[in-house]
Every structure is written in structure tokens, then in C-alpha cells.
Design a protein around this nucleic acid. Sequence first.
DNA 1: ACCGTAGCACTAACCGTTAGCGTTTAAAAA
DNA 2: TTTTTAAACGCTAACGGTTAGTGCTACGGT
Lengths: 213, 213
Amino acid sequence: MTVPSGRRERKKAATRQKIADTALRLFLERGYDAVGIRDVAAEADVAVTTLFSHFASKEALVFEQDGDFEQRLTQAVACRAPHEPLMPALRREIQALVRHCTADSSAPIWRMVDESPALREYEESMRLRHAESLARAIAADLDLSETTTACRTIARFVIDAYSLAREAADPETAVDEIFHMIEAAWEVTCPSGGARGTVPPGKAGAGRAVTSR
Amino acid sequence: MTVPSGRRERKKAATRQKIADTALRLFLERGYDAVGIRDVAAEADVAVTTLFSHFASKEALVFEQDGDFEQRLTQAVACRAPHEPLMPALRREIQALVRHCTADSSAPIWRMVDESPALREYEESMRLRHAESLARAIAADLDLSETTTACRTIARFVIDAYSLAREAADPETAVDEIFHMIEAAWEVTCPSGGARGTVPPGKAGAGRAVTSR
DNA sequence: ACCGTAGCACTAACCGTTAGCGTTTAAAAA
DNA sequence: TTTTTAAACGCTAACGGTTAGTGCTACGGT
């Protein structure tokens, strides 16, 4: 029960990678819905049960490749430069993520996702989980003992920004536009955290204290 | 091809209702996952194929009962009192919807939904559709010819308010809190009525590369 | 009165997913 | 080293949601 480091791990990882690569190739060649689990398993030369011991579902074959999305967001909050405001850091990270998944190399994959209702649903439910993680990270950053409604709300908005920008005609502009709105929402609830003064309940007007570009 | 009003419609509606009632009863009695489609069909005394000609999926048996959610939101925008600002109208409607589904009478149903991942996913994807409809309604209200990013964003935020408030300890307070944030976001993009430049000139692309449907 | 069609039923299957059980083999314990 | 353990993998068979394919029946328009 110690660390099973060695050949075994490598073989397992290799099998997993082979399955993932085969699946993605077949999906892109013939379309997600036109390829069955049994096809993937046969082509990767593994049993169906083996495939499901590596991936929890068919959709996971597509998404579980780069699982660092969640980590990147929470680390953008936790590991940012000292005294850097929260929102600009998040905006930068979302910008990077959007750029990454609208790049030409990722385009076919995302087109496939957009065309399959099953994949869209799966991604949506992933995003909700990510939003909860982000909410916890934000709450921790503010030294809150629990995730408040405000934290959850802002986290949702940030995830929405990613989702909406990805579909926009001009993703980068969309991120800026949406974060402009998010920062306004952020200011009226919790600009505290120790640094600045709280905005009184009166209208904050068009004022934008936090920088954006 | 005229209006097929008559006995036929009544019979169809009766069959549909009988299926829905039977399904909900069985689900609440034995749990959603413990009841199969074949069970529902047998108990409602219809064939499985008949069931699926009335409902698109098992999850739809739970949610397609009150399908007016979407309509209530769009009408809250379109049919509000003249000169009433947009956000208060939406806030009122969301408040009513949240109250409705946190009422004691609805409690068992929503507990069932919360306990079943399949139902949660289904509801999430419904919410996305609702957000798109709401975005169109908002765009139309502002005399925009297309659904802009800002409209889509605000629509998402409003749907998020519903979703988050439903899970909050104090739903009504949560709605107010979240709408406070939404109104701040709204003000920085669309300062009162005028359909003004939410997108800097030069980028107002109407075309879309991805996203079918 | 007659015909088109909508509603419904039945069989049989497809597809994703899981359970049960056995085999290999790498790693840990002796 | 030898023995023991358990993880990875495989096979068969099945379950549950969903969908053709086909045909029957009865309602409704003409």
C-alpha cells in the first residue's frame, strides 16, 4: 500500500493514453455520435470494461484529457502576486483559457463538442463543479470561513464569462466586456477583504476603481 | 390540417397526463433511479414507445410538467408595465419562481432532483436554453436586431440567480443580494434604455464560426 | 360514407454502462 | 529468494434508456 511507483504505473498511464488518443482520433474522424464505446475499445485493443476503469463515461474521453482547468482557476486566485486585486487576476486567467480553446489547434474538438448535445451537457455540469471550487477559493482568499452567496455568485459569473466568450464572435473582446460587468457586480458586494473601504449602499455609478487593462 | 380540436386532442392530453402522473407518483414512492421506464409504462398501461412519443426522455417526465418557466421570464420582460425598469421586473419574477419551487408542496420533487445527478444535469441544460430565450427577449426589449454579448451575459446572470437562490439557506434574501450585483453589472453596460454601444465599433460581427443550432 | 393520418402497440434491437468472475503480473512482505 | 497481495485487464452477460420498423385502430375532415 505504499507508493506503487514503477513499471506498473507507466503501463497504466500508457493504456490510458492509448485509449484517449484512439477515442479522440475516431471521434474526429467519424463524429462523436457515430463512434461507439465498443469501437473505441476494439481500436485501442482493450476490453470495454478496461476502458471504463480508466474513464468514467464516454464524454470523459473527450474532456478528461486536460483536467487542469479547475486548478488553473483556483491557483489564479490563491497564487497571484501579493496585493494584486482579485478580478484582474481572474480576468487574465480566463482570457488565457479562452485563447487556448479558441486556438486553431483546438477548433475541431470544440466544434465536435458544440455539435453533440451529450458533450455540451457534460461540459455544462463540469462548469458547475468548477464554479463551486472557484467559490471556495475566493472565500478562502477573503478569509471567510464559509462560501457565501456572494462568493458563489461571482464564481458563477466568472465561469459564465468563459462559457459565453467561447461562443462569441470575438472572444477576447467578449471577455473584457463581461469582466467589466463582473467587476461592477463585485464592487457592490465585497470590495473589503481588508484593503479598501466598503462601498455604501448608494449607487456606485459608473465608477470603476479596479483597473481593467 | 385545421385545428384538430375534439375528442382526439382530449384523449391524447389524457394519456399524457396519465403518464406524467403515474411517473411522478412512482418516482416519489420508490425513488427516481429505482423506477424504470418499463415500470412507468406498465403502470400507466401504455407501451414504452407511446411514452416516448409524449416525452422526449425519462428526465422530461419530471420537468416537462410545468413548462411555463421560460414563458414567465420572457413575459416578465415583454409584458411589464410601461416604463418600468427591466431589472426590478425580472427580480420580482425570479423571486416568485424561487418562492414557488421552495414551497413545501414542491419540496419532495426538488429533493428528488437534488439527489439524482441525471436530473440535475437535465435541469442545468434546461437553464441554458432558458437563458438564451431570456437573452433574446432582453435584446428585443432594447430594440436590438441581434442578441449581443451583454444581453446574453445578463440573461445568464439572472438564471444563475434562480439557481443559486434555490440552494441558498435563505432564498429570498439571496435573490435580493444577487440582483443587487446584477443591477450593478447592468448599469455599466446599458445605462438606461438607449441601445448604446456595448461593443466598440469595428467588432460587431454578426457571423459566427462555431455553434450550430 | 370514405379516406388520410394521428395515436398507439408490439417486437427487436442498439448503445452506454455495470456486475460477476477469472487471469495475469508487478510489487510488497516473508 | 519465495510467497503473498492486489491492481490491471479480460470475458460474458446483463440492465436500463432509447429508437427503428411495422401495423392496427379510430377519429376527423371532406
